[in-house]
Computed example of a mutant assay.
Amino acid sequence: MRARLGYAGGAAVLVLAAAPYFLAPYATTTLTRMLVFALLAASLDLLVGFAGLPALGHAAYVGVGAYAAAWFAKNVGSAGPVPLVIALGAGAVAAAATGWVAVRTHGVFFLMLTLAIGEIVAQAAETWEPVTGGSNGLYGVPATRIGDTPLAVAGVYWYVLAAFVVGFLVLWLVSRSPFGAALRGIRDNEPRMRALGYATRRYKYLAFVLSGAIAGLAGGLLAAQQRLVTPSDLGFTTAALALLAVIIGGSGSLWGPCLGAAVVIVVRDVVGPDIDGHGPLLLGLVFILVVYLLPRGAAGLQWPTRNRPTAPPARALEEARRS
């Protein structure tokens, strides 16, 4: 199964890498936005799907990373990938500064506390005009350069794709590591994991920081793609759409939220303008359909395999041994 997923992932990367040769510039730009939003959704899935921590303020770390990368590119230099490293570090620092409070709560309290953190950061971006540009945003961000060459539309796309692959691989390796297994145990039964000797709060805090760092990287990619950062990029709407992408795609899979992010971007940026701006209404309908028809999201679909009908479940085998 893992080998097939690896082959499918490699094939997907090859198809994505070849996309600018077959797409118009506008479609390439839309696909770039999909990759940025997919990385945000995957970083959020580390909290929602693996640690069991649904967050509504994750856009704050995207915004911190985006503002940090944009400010650095505008005032120091836009040679890549330095602004992305700055964005990743800024997201990690912001998550470390706020996560130690957030991980002390659970369930709805965690959800509301992260929402409050996101709104505080958004309000700070709105009022800290000398640095963030206030409501006008931080504009005039220079184009990302590789060497002395500024990147055009296709170049920005490949730049974003390369960073997306690196960020996704980091999340995938973490999710398949003993650390990821411990996070799943905490998600399923935190008191039992604590009784086994795991410092559950420390595990959740490290997951929160890593998730914030990857979200900051997504923010750096956002600044490189649109060359403008506004307070709306780190507001409630962005955070809610990211959580919606995780639900649509299926939490706990990483690739599912990426698929959900693509659906969100298509509905919001492609279909929405063609239906008189009713994209949010259509997204709401998609959400309702997913909740009722696909409770585990797109990643929860069970594809038939050759061996599945004849392979008894592990629980049945255990019961058979006992009898």
Rank of each mutant, 00 (worst) to 15 (best):
Y292P: 05
I265Y: 00
L289W: 09
G134F: 03
E319Q: 12
S211N: 07
E319S: 10
Y159V: 13
S175R: 00
V266L: 04
T114S: 08
Y21W: 12
F208H: 13
G185V: 05
G185D: 08
G6S: 12
G284R: 09
I186G: 11
A51P: 00
G256H: 00
Y203V: 12
V76Y: 04
K74I: 03
Y7H: 04
H278N: 09
R4S: 02
D276G: 12
D148L: 15
A242N: 03
F168K: 10
N136L: 14
G9P: 04
Y7C: 09
E319H: 14
E129G: 10
A124N: 09
A51R: 01
D276Y: 14
L173P: 05
N189T: 05
G260Q: 04
F50D: 02
V82S: 03
L84Q: 05
V101S: 15
A102I: 08
V131Q: 09
F168N: 09
A92R: 01
V291M: 15
L169T: 12
M34Q: 08
V267F: 00
T127R: 13
V36Y: 02
L111M: 14
D45E: 02
L16N: 00
I186D: 07
R192C: 04
V15K: 07
A207N: 06
L16K: 03
G9L: 05
L23H: 06
A27N: 14
Y198L: 14
P309M: 08
A207H: 08
L16M: 01
P312I: 11
L138P: 06
W71G: 08
L35D: 05
P150C: 07
R322M: 03
R2T: 07
V48C: 03
V103D: 02
L289T: 12
A162F: 15
A116T: 08
T29I: 08
G256E: 02
V62N: 04
G107M: 03
L301T: 07
H58R: 06
G6W: 09
V108T: 13
Q226D: 06
T237Q: 07
L173T: 07
T28C: 14
T310D: 11
G133Y: 06
L317E: 13
H58W: 03
M193S: 04
